[in-house]
């Protein structure tokens, strides 16, 4: 009962990027906010579509409320980098500079096949 987590948001359909150096983020769930970027480049935060230029405006109050905030960017592997770069710029503007590029763990064998 203690460990039950009722999800507050829906997972968006994305193709995950894989990385061998993927590590577990040792942070409480309440300190993590997810920024989803689907293949079309649409950004979702807490199930809401957020225009790129408004990301800082959405994240800033969350960061003001919680200085331990970590932003997990869950981007589709095919999204052009300029969109990810816009997100990181918006995060810098909001002050939330602790960022994680969410990835799936990749085994060495898979990596060799890439």
């Amino acid at each position: 009962m203690d460990s039950t987590v009722f999800r507050k948001e829906r997972d968006q359909p994305i193709d995950w990027a894989n990385a061998e150096a993927t590590e577990k983020i040792d942070e409480k769930r309440k300190n993590i906010v997810h920024v989803w970027v689907d293949r079309e480049g649409t950004v979702f935060i807490n199930d809401q579509i957020v225009p790129y230029e408004s990301i800082a405006g959405v994240i800033r109050p969350l960061y003001t409320e919680n200085r331990n905030l970590v932003v997990a960017i869950r981007g589709d592997r095919e999204v052009p980098y300029n969109q990810i770069n816009t997100i990181t710029e918006q995060l810098q503007a909001s002050g939330a500079v602790r960022v994680t590029f969410a990835t799936r763990i990749e085994q060495q064998v898979q990596r060799a096949r890439r």
């Binding site: 009962m1 460990s3 039950t4 987590v5 009722f6 999800r7 990385a19 150096a21 993927t22 590590e23 577990k24 983020i25 942070e27 769930r29 993590i32 970590v70 997990a72 990181t88 995060l91 810098q92 503007a93 002050g95 500079v97 602790r98 960022v99 994680t100 590029f101 969410a102 990835t103 799936r104 763990i105």
Partner: peptide, 21 residues
């Protein structure tokens, strides 16, 4: 009920600290 509904959420990824603006 709790066994079936429990989700252990593990955040995984490549962490980085962006420079301040």
């Amino acid at each position: 009920f709790f066994l079936t509904t429990t989700v252990f959420n593990e955040e995984k990824g490549l962490p980085i600290v962006l420079p301040e603006e």
